[in-house]
Each structure stands twice: as structure tokens, then as C-alpha cells.
Computed example of a mutant assay.
Amino acid sequence: MTTQETPSPAAAPFPPVLTRCADAETCADPSSVMTLFADSDGTADGFTSYRSTFAKGAVGAPAHFHTKATELFFVISGSLQVLVGEEVTVLGAGDFLAVPPHTPHAFAAAPGSEADVLFVFTPGMGRFDYLRLLGRVMRGEADPSEIAESAERFDNHYVDSPAWRAALEASA
């Protein structure tokens, strides 16, 4: 019988990450509270993770895509309406979704529901500044043009989606 040697921590692509809930930064806008857990340091193996709690009827993100990151969604509770490509569906508690790069997607609390969702981006890109910017724009503290100007920096590219517009209009 052979035993394997325990790998050296120096062989890991990044150090272990532990964020205690009590220590996590929170950002809020009129429709959601985001708890920021871990942000990438820009390495190819990094990731970004945060939790968003959406109020009933809250609109999350408009249709957009990422060129580098896969975005992972895990619904902790409630229901999340999502666009993936041109299909709109509802995710419930315990559902998981992985959206690969270049795939248009959007999300909002499902009609009549709140949603509590864990998000992970891999590789990460230091997205916490983007989330902070969104909050400032939604509170009227920053100009919306700053979001468009940050598309490359945060790998967040907005697109038009008639399917998503129709879904939001139907739930209004």
C-alpha cells in the first residue's frame, strides 16, 4: 500500500479564503443587499463570490455577458427569474446555474418573490468595485455612464434582449 504525500500549501494556486459573515462588507441599493465574501486578486485561478438578497419584485441585472468569466448562481431561498441566451426561466431554492462566457444572461427576483442567491465568478476579476459602483448609481450618488465606461475593466458587457424586456413587462 502506498500513501500519497500531502501537497505543500505553496503548490496551491491561491491561499485558502475564509470570510466570516460578521466580517464581510455589505453593499446595499434600493432593491438588494450584497454581502461580499471573496474578490479575485486578478490571477487566472482566482474567483469572486458574494451573496445578494433581493427584495420582492427587485430587478437584479439587465441583460449582459462576460467574455472571460463563468458566472455561477446558487439559489439559497426564494425564486430568481433568469435569462440565459434567449430563454427565461425561474430558479427555486436549491437550484444551481452556470452561465459560460459570451452567453447573454440577466436576473431578477421572480414575480411576487424575494430571492437569496450566492454568486461566484471564475476566474474572478476584482468585481467588488463594480458592485459598489452599482449601488452608488442606484442611490443617485454616481452617474450611470460610469457603468458603461467600466465594461472592459469588469468584463460586464450589456446587450439588448427583447425576451428579457418582455419578461420584465409581464411581471410588472
Rank of each mutant, 00 (worst) to 15 (best):
D143I: 07
A108K: 01
R136N: 02
V137E: 01
G124H: 06
V120I: 15
A108E: 12
L133W: 01
L134Y: 01
V137F: 00
F119E: 06
V137C: 01
R136G: 00
V117I: 08
Y130M: 15
L133N: 03
D143L: 08
D129I: 03
S113H: 15
M138Q: 14
L134K: 02
F121T: 05
D129Q: 03
L131D: 03
G126N: 11
G126Y: 03
R136I: 00
V120Y: 12
V137T: 03
A142R: 13
R139Q: 12
F121G: 02
G112N: 11
L131A: 05
V120F: 08
R136Q: 02
V117D: 05
M125T: 09
F121A: 10
D129K: 04
G140V: 00
F119W: 10
P111W: 01
F128W: 06
A115F: 06
A142K: 10
M125V: 08
F119G: 07
L131P: 02
F121P: 00
F128E: 05
E141N: 09
A110P: 13
L133A: 02
A110D: 07
V137P: 00
S113M: 13
E114A: 08
F128K: 06
L134D: 02
D129Y: 02
A115H: 08
D116Y: 10
D129A: 08
L131I: 10
F119T: 01
F119N: 04
T122Y: 12
R139K: 14
V117Q: 04
R132L: 12
A115T: 09
R127N: 12
L118Y: 08
L118S: 10
D129P: 06
S113Q: 14
R139E: 11
A110S: 15
A109V: 06
L118Q: 11
D129R: 05
A115N: 12
L131W: 01
G140F: 01
L133G: 00
A108S: 15
D143S: 13
T122E: 12
L118A: 10
S113N: 14
V137G: 04
F121Q: 06
L134I: 13
E114R: 06
A115M: 09
A108N: 00
M125H: 14
G112A: 08
F128D: 08
F128P: 12
A110I: 09
V137I: 14
Y130G: 15
E114C: 05
G140N: 03
P123A: 13
R132A: 13
R132C: 07
D116T: 11
D143P: 11
R132F: 05
Y130P: 15
G126A: 08
L133T: 07
L134A: 07
S113Y: 13
F121I: 04
G124M: 02
Y130N: 15
L131Y: 05
R132T: 07
G140E: 02
P111Q: 13
E141R: 09
M138V: 01
G135N: 12
A109Q: 13
V120C: 14
L131V: 09
G140Y: 01
F128S: 05
G124D: 04
A110R: 01
M125Y: 08
G135A: 13
L133Q: 04
E141Q: 08
A110G: 01
A110F: 01
G126Q: 07
L118G: 08
R127E: 09
D129F: 03
G124A: 01
V117C: 05
G126H: 07
P111G: 10
